[in-house]
Design a protein around this nucleic acid. Structure first.
Lengths: 145, 145
DNA sequence: TTGGCTGCAAAATATTTGCAGAACA
DNA sequence: TGTTCTGCAAATATTTTGCAGCCAA
C-alpha cells in the first residue's frame, strides 16, 4: 500500500463504505499531514476544491475514519478536537501561546499502571501531552521584554 | 494551613480577590474531591445550597482559581472540561464507556523531551492520560455477552 | 463607599441531528 | 435501483460575554 489515500480507500471499501470525492479529498489532505488539523481546518482546505462541502460531511467522514481506524482524535486543546492521521504510538506537545501541536516521537516503554490501579482499570492505550511554549513564541516573548 | 478551604481563602486574599459565600462553597466542594467534576457538576452541587447560583459565577470562580493556582484543568474528555483540586504531579485514566476519570499516582521520572524536540519546544509540564475501561464497566460488558 | 462579584439573558463556538435530494456501487 | 452519502438548516451543549444591581472590604 503505497500511500495513505490508497490505504484508507481500501479500508473504507473493506468496511463496505462508499468512496466519494469528498472522502478522497479528506484522505488526500491528511496524507502525511503533521499539522494536527481541526475539523474547521479540514473544512477550509476542502472548500477550495469543493465550494459546497459542509461541516456535516467533514464530521461524518472523520467519524467513519475513527470507527474503522486510520485517524486519531487528539483531546489536548480545550477549545476543539484535533485529528492526526498518524495512529502509531507517539505523543504531543501543545504550545499554550499559539496553540500549535507538535509530534513527540520518543521511546517510552509501554507504561504499566501500578498494581492498585490495574485492579480498577484496564488500559488499552495512553498518551503523553506536554504543555509549554514553542520556539517561535519563546522568541516573540523574549523580544517583548 | 489545615485544609483546602483555608488554603484557597488565603490565596484569594493574597491575590486581592474577595471572599464570597459562593467562592467558599466552591472551595468546600472541591476540598479532597477526587471525582474530577465538570462545571456542571459543581453548579449542580452548589445549587442545593445556593438556588440562585449561576454558571457565570461557577466559571468565573474556576477561572480565578486557574489564574492564581489551586486547581487544574483536565483536557481528557472530548465533551467537556474536568477540574482537579489536586495540583501535584499525577496522571489520569479515562473509562471510555462511562466517562469516569480516576487518579493515577505513579512515579514517572520527569520526562525529558528528545534533543531534536527540545530545540523546538520548552515544556513546563506534562500529563499522561490512560484510556480504557474501568472495573465496573468491564464487569457489565462481560455479563452482556 | 466602591470596585469587584453575582446572576440573568443573550451570544459565541463547536459539534450533532433530521431530512430531502444526489450519487456511488 | 437502492442504499448510503451529502449538504442545508436547525438543534444541542458548553463556555463566554454584556450589563445592572449587590455586597465584601
Amino acid at each position: 500500500m503505497k500511500n495513505y489515500v490508497d490505504f484508507m480507500t481500501a479500508r473504507f471499501k473493506a468496511a463496505g463504505y462508499k468512496i466519494t470525492p469528498q472522502r478522497i479529498a479528506v484522505f488526500r489532505f491528511l496524507d502525511g499531514n503533521k499539522s494536527h488539523p481541526t475539523a474547521e481546518d479540514i473544512f477550509a482546505a476542502l472548500r477550495r476544491e469543493y465550494p459546497n462541502i459542509s461541516y456535516t460531511t467533514v464530521y461524518n467522514i472523520l467519524k467513519s475514519m475513527l470507527r474503522i481506524g486510520g485517524i486519531q482524535e487528539l483531546v489536548i486543546d480545550r477549545e476543539r478536537i484535533h485529528y492526526d492521521p498518524n495512529t502509531s504510538l507517539h505523543h504531543h506537545a501543545l504550545c499554550i501561546k499559539c496553540g500549535k501541536i507538535i509530534d513527540v516521537i520518543m521511546p517510552v516503554k509501554t507504561l504499566k499502571l501500578p498494581g492498585k490501579i490495574s485492579a480498577q482499570f484496564i488500559p488499552t492505550s495512553f498518551q503523553i501531552y506536554f504543555y509549554g511554549k514553542c520556539r517561535d513564541c519563546e522568541i516573540k516573548d523574549a523580544k517583548e521584554k
